[in-house]
Amino acid sequence: MLVHSRRAKWAVWAVFLVLFLPLFALPLLVVLGASFATHWSGVLPSGLTTGHYRAATRGEALQALTTSLVTAVTASLLALATGTWAALAGAALKKRHRRLLDALFVLPVAVPSVVVGLSVLVAFSKPPMLLNGTRWIVILAHTVLVTAFAHQSVSAAITRLDPAYEQAAASLGARPAYVLWRVRLPLLLPSLTAAAGLCFALSMGELSATMMLYPPDWTPLPVLIYAATDRGALFAGSAIAVVLMAATLLVLFAVSRVRTRASYR
């Protein structure tokens, strides 16, 4: 539309690829390549091996994978429940109150995750809520961090929801709770699963707050990757990183399958 001649088009695309590929595709390819190598000082990695993966799928790394999965699933479900509740309750409020609620729930996005980690550490290191040293402090911090995203995407979906559906339901004699359960939530399902996927991915990759909080027996994957690179084991770290990416993508794919089945229009 913008560029009409064939040559100009190809030139634009060449520039695009020159910028796009090295910047965005290359990093991922490099990590993938390194995960199969033991040396990389030339153009291509050398000393090909699958040994890193053997290490990355057992023992400590396997433990970290389950830790990450459990943390991410728990945190996203809790965040989804809280965020959806807040969004639904907020939708019934007057505009001024709703804005206040939105601002409140979006605040964790603006606050640095490190600070969220620090604040959780400060607050829950002493009785009556002594969570420091348990897995719950990690899950709690993740939940706080991703609730904002869940709330944002669900409330955006609620404003897009045509009120004609709930009004039709109400005119047919359905009480508000029945309308919520049988009409609004099913119609929101695609957005809910999308929000869940987003929360899951964010939690899987969360490093900042986790670094402040994780107890020795609850080490998620990003921390393990950092530990590996910090002691110089870059190639082993890459393999764990690939496992992290693969696990995230797999879950996101499964979630998107649920979503396509849940979207009716």
């Binding site: 990093p27 390194a34 990759g205 950092y226 890459s238």
Partner: peptide
């Protein structure tokens, strides 16, 4: 949907 540190990890190799 990937964490930011993956980029640094890749740059470490490059």
């Amino acid at each position: 949907s990937f964490p930011s540190f993956l980029i640094t990890l890749a740059l470490l190799f490059i």
